[in-house]
Simulated assay, not measured.
Amino acid sequence: MTASTFKNLALAFEEVTEQPHFEKTSFRVKKKIIATLDEKTLKASFKLTEIDQSVFCTFKPKQIYPATGAWGRQGWTIFELADLPTEIIQDALTLSYRNVAPKNLASKYEI
């Protein structure tokens, strides 16, 4: 997956905007981050539930893993995008969006 493809997937969700976030790009709904993208390393992070984080990390533990420290314990999960199937990234984006977006927006996206 390329950075451009990732951006297109993230921006397809209703009311998502792209904004700088330190040295990364963030994707937000109602000013809350649903994902970040580090274009240099081609890594993205998503806000997942503890259960979803566990499932994704079990699937590809070398490419999907919790962020370090408290961020990881809060569900932030890093995905190394290069060799992951688009469907996995789309599922993670959808779950992250549903975890962060207001209920009226989140309910429009099912997995």
Rank of each mutant, 00 (worst) to 15 (best):
N8F: 05
Q90M: 10
M1W: 02
V55F: 04
T49A: 06
F59N: 06
Q19W: 04
Q53L: 01
K47P: 09
G72F: 07
S45A: 15
S45Q: 04
L105T: 08
S54G: 06
E23C: 08
G69S: 13
L84G: 02
A67R: 01
E110K: 12
A101M: 10
S96R: 06
F6I: 02
G69N: 09
N99P: 07
L37C: 08
E80G: 02
A44S: 10
F22I: 14
W71S: 13
H21T: 13
P20M: 11
E50Q: 15
S107A: 15
P102S: 06
V55H: 05
N99G: 09
K30A: 13
R98G: 03
P85V: 02
A106W: 05
T68C: 12
Q19C: 09
H21P: 12
L11F: 09
T58L: 13
G75R: 01
L95P: 01
K7F: 02
A92M: 09
I89Y: 00
Q19L: 14
T68V: 14
A12R: 12
D52M: 09
T41V: 05
E50A: 14
E110P: 01
T58A: 15
K62M: 08
V29T: 06
E80A: 07
I78K: 00
K47R: 15
D52G: 06
E14Q: 14
I89A: 00
P102F: 08
T2S: 11
L105W: 05
K60N: 14
K60R: 15
P20W: 05
D38R: 04
T17N: 08
N99K: 13
A70S: 13
M1F: 01
L9W: 08
K60V: 06
T94I: 04
F22R: 13
K32L: 13
Q90T: 13
L84R: 00
E87T: 14
E50H: 10
E18G: 04
